[in-house]
Amino acid sequence: MRSALGWVAAAVLLSAVAFFLSGYYNDVYRKLLLWIALALSYNFLFGISGQVAFSHFAFYGIGAYAVVIFLFQLGMPLPLAILAGVLVCSAIALIVAIPSTRLEGFYLALATLALAQLFIVVLNEGGAVTGGTGGLVNYRLPAIFGVYITGPWYTAVIVILVLGTYALLRHLDRSWFGRACRAVRDNPEAAAAMGVNVARTKVIAFTLTSVLAGIAGMVYAFVDNTVNPPIFGLENAFLLLFMVIIGGSGRHAGAIVGAVLLYLLPFVLSPLIGHHHALVFGALMVVVILLQPRGLIGLYDRYPRGQKAH
């Protein structure tokens, strides 16, 4: 009961922030929250489950496009469109994950790299369905029970998405499923000997996190009210990886720190080096891997860790 109150308080507090922000800062805040949601689920995939995949941002895009296409091209009602979007993400995730996880090594990384690129090709060439290079524009979130959710109220929807993602992943991480994922990451042979079905654990983790990315994408679709190919390029798949590694992979706090830092850094850096902030990201990535493999959150760990019994 107390923890439920905590979640509600967090939701109210984080949503309240939006009511004090002007339009531009509200937009920045919304995107920061979306990056945190993505970094959290990518951390579960990469950091906790140990799967190197480049498809996470593509699933964000698949979710965004899917919900818009289902709503406005096929005229589905909102709940059905969301459900159909989830099904599309699950189906694609399963098609990629089931064969890839049978194989050792970096096959998943390569197959998902190809998937991410293929997604962009399909978006560009999808004609009227995807809107081609221009994407899809001029739509808005349908009314829910006669109400149009806009402005800071929509930011509250994003807050609920982030907190829901976090609560779910934290619960999983602390359960036998999270331990199985870590075991598979650390030593698949020993994990199997402990009764863990390695292939199934990987497929479930991949599909679940991909669907979470897809749901975040559905929410994003009504932030800018446009979806177009450049938004979902491979660049952002790399950025997501950098966020998790620089923040500290395998830790929820690490993913949050990484997402906040790498999302806000360009605002600080752009007066200095224009749009070349990626140079700093790349260098930071190399330095962190070389000097602080546990990421920035690893620096914090040097303090006494009496509370870490959990």
Binding site: G282, M285, P293
Partner: peptide, 24 residues
């Protein structure tokens, strides 16, 4: 003695450094 993956990821970082360096 870091895992192979660490080198692959560090090289991804270098990839960005090369590209942004040239762009700069």
């Amino acid at each position: 003695g870091a895992p192979l993956l660490a080198a692959i990821l560090a090289l991804l970082g270098m990839l960005v450094v090369f590209r942004e360096g040239i762009s700069l």
